[in-house]
Amino acid sequence: MAERLRVAAILSGRGSNMAALLYASRLRDCPYELCLVASNKPEAAGLSLAKAEGIETWALSHKGIAKADFEAALTATLEAAETDYVALCGFMRVLSPEFVERWSGRIVNIHPSLLPKYKGLDTHARAIDAGDPVAGCSVHLVTPELDDGPVLGQIEVAILPSDTPDTLAARVLHAEHQLYPAALSAYVARHLDADWLLEQVRDLALELPEAEEAPSHGSPAFKTKKGKFFAHFSDRHHGEERIALLVKTSGEDEMSALIGAEPDLYHRPAYYGASGWIGLRLDRKDTDWDHVASWLQSSWRRTASKSLTKLLDAADEF
């Protein structure tokens, strides 16, 4: 099984969604573990549960200190716990844009509405008052704008004629406990999903002038129109355990130097290495997609015609 990603939960109260994440993490195939439960309220019930379950906890009251100081202390604690992702579980404070940007793409939240409907508070009353047939919950990435990040998953919950905000909230909470672990698991493990990795590569490769996708030996690959292949997508081919992008180097010296310097990132691909291709591993939790884009462009330049490279050179000048 792949190394589990380390998730820190941040809460202000009972932590029922934290508990859902915690107990889901005990399943054998869960891709994450809870490494920390943190709170702005030292008396929060969720902290007591986490301690009882053997999870590291941290608490600091936000009262009487500047937000920047609270978030600096929280950041230091998250980093000390080697946190990969942050999950908000009823954290009743608005995070600063600086904190959110620090964890951009790695901080998630669960919200009790079907976003983009009913951002903010009183979501159940607003859904009932609007006459909606369904309410629900959403897991989304956190961005500086409140409840506005990309949605990772949703569950609908029927609104009954007799519902009050409290009765509806109780049923939506059941849905939250199902949705949050599932959506978080899928998101943090996306770096092991070949389809997701290929989509990222495809988006970058097809940005290059006259690039097109075409199969090569039964695998996805990218070439210039009426030209040569400049990238191959390798999904554990030829007995490899890795999902990788094969790109063109200048030759044996460059390939050997790269592999020698970073053997966990680069490798000599079976059947391709003799032709100057190197494998760039993609199935890593910290894949640098700017680095991947740079390699795609470099490999494209090695295989494209001079007339095409002049187009890219002209574009780079702007």
Rank of each mutant, 00 (worst) to 15 (best):
L245S: 01
L114H: 09
V37D: 01
L173G: 03
V151A: 02
P165Q: 06
H140S: 05
E176F: 02
G239N: 01
K248W: 01
R6C: 01
L146Q: 08
R268Q: 13
E156S: 14
L173D: 10
F70K: 00
N40S: 09
K310T: 09
R202K: 12
I155A: 04
A24D: 12
L36P: 08
F233E: 07
Q178H: 14
R281Y: 08
R302T: 01
L60N: 01
S216A: 11
E176R: 08
S61T: 15
L22P: 03
R26D: 02
E43Y: 03
H267I: 06
L88Q: 02
L258V: 07
G90V: 06
D163Q: 07
T143G: 02
E156I: 06
T224R: 13
G13N: 08
I243F: 05
Y271K: 12
W277E: 00
C89L: 08
E212G: 11
S250N: 14
H238M: 10
G105Q: 03
L265N: 14
R301W: 08
H174R: 15
Q297A: 07
A257N: 14
M18V: 07
P165D: 06
W103L: 02
G105C: 09
G218A: 09
H237A: 08
V151F: 07
S234L: 09
V188N: 10
A205T: 02
V100D: 07
Y118H: 15
Y187Q: 02
D29N: 12
A45V: 05
K117S: 14
K67E: 04
F318T: 00
V157E: 14
I155S: 01
F230A: 07
R268T: 01
D122H: 11
E82H: 15
A214C: 10
V292M: 09
G90M: 10
W196M: 01
Q297S: 12
F233K: 03
L47T: 01
S113I: 05
W196F: 15
V188H: 12
D84Q: 05
D129H: 12
L27M: 04
F233M: 08
L95M: 15
V108F: 15
A169Y: 10
D203T: 12
A125T: 09
K223P: 05
R14H: 11
E156N: 03
T77N: 10
Y118G: 04
E156K: 12
A44Q: 10
A38D: 02
R28V: 13
T224S: 05
R281G: 09
A231L: 14
S299N: 02
H111N: 11
A52P: 04
R242V: 05
W295C: 09
P31K: 06
E252A: 14
L184Q: 08
A214P: 00
R6F: 04
K51E: 15
L74Q: 13
R202Q: 06
L198Q: 05
Y32D: 00
S113T: 05
L49T: 10
Q200W: 09
A127Y: 07
S138V: 15
S96D: 08
G54R: 06
L60F: 05
A189R: 12
D84C: 10
W277H: 06
V108M: 15
V247Y: 15
T75G: 11
V7T: 08
L114R: 13
A211K: 13
S234K: 14
P220F: 07
A186Y: 01
L206G: 00
